[in-house]
Computed example of a mutant assay.
Amino acid sequence: MHELTGFQRDLLYVIAAADQPSGQDVKSEIEGYYSADINHGRLYPNLDTLVNRGLVEKGQLDRRTNYYDITGEGEQLIRERREWESQYVDT
């Protein structure tokens, strides 16, 4: 997880919590969390990075819409991160 930016980590969490969200679904959720507009030039390259690292799979819902799904490796990375965080934060 240390190789990801905070933004990429947040995208991974959003994807993990949803059932095959579209890019627009991810964008809406992350904009709500950041309380700011996220442009496509920031969102999609970061999603592609997660796909290229094998943490997220990208599929096609229709000719215009892709979906994203967390992989087993992505889930494992989140588990490891949460274990590390729990050393420092009471939950």
Rank of each mutant, 00 (worst) to 15 (best):
E80S: 14
P45I: 10
E3W: 09
G32D: 11
A36R: 15
T91V: 10
G32A: 06
L47V: 03
E73T: 14
A18P: 00
Q87W: 08
R82I: 04
D62W: 02
R9W: 12
G54W: 10
S22T: 15
L61Q: 07
G41V: 06
L43H: 02
G72T: 14
L11I: 13
H2P: 01
Q20E: 12
S86C: 01
R9A: 08
H40V: 08
E29Y: 04
T71I: 03
E83M: 09
N39E: 12
Q8R: 10
I38K: 02
V26K: 01
G72K: 11
R9P: 00
V14A: 15
P21V: 13
S28A: 15
Q8I: 03
G41S: 14
G54V: 07
R9F: 14
Q20H: 06
I15L: 07
Y67V: 00
K27L: 13
V26S: 01
R64Q: 11
T91F: 10
H40S: 12
Y88C: 01
P21D: 12
V26F: 03
Q24I: 06
A18E: 14
E29A: 14
S28M: 12
D69T: 04
T49N: 06
P45F: 11
R82F: 06
E80F: 10
D62R: 04
Y44F: 15
P45T: 10
D48S: 08
V89Q: 10
Y33D: 07
G54A: 08
Y44I: 09
K27I: 05
A18K: 13
G54F: 09
I78W: 06
Y33N: 04
K58V: 08
W84E: 14
S35C: 05
E57S: 08
D37W: 04
G74F: 07
H2I: 13
D19W: 09
G59K: 05
G59P: 05
L47F: 02
E83R: 13
I30R: 01
Q24D: 11
L50I: 12
L55F: 12
R79V: 13
Y67P: 00
N66T: 02
G6N: 12
G41A: 10
R9I: 09
G74H: 09
I38R: 02
D37H: 07
T65N: 07
N66D: 10
D25E: 15
G59Q: 07
G6H: 08
T91M: 05
L43G: 02
R81Q: 13
A36E: 14
G41Q: 13
H2T: 13
R63K: 10
A17C: 11
M1G: 07
Q20D: 06
A18F: 09
S28V: 11
D90C: 04
R9G: 03
E31C: 05
N46R: 08
F7Q: 05
G23Q: 04
H40L: 05
Q24N: 09
R9N: 05
T71Q: 00
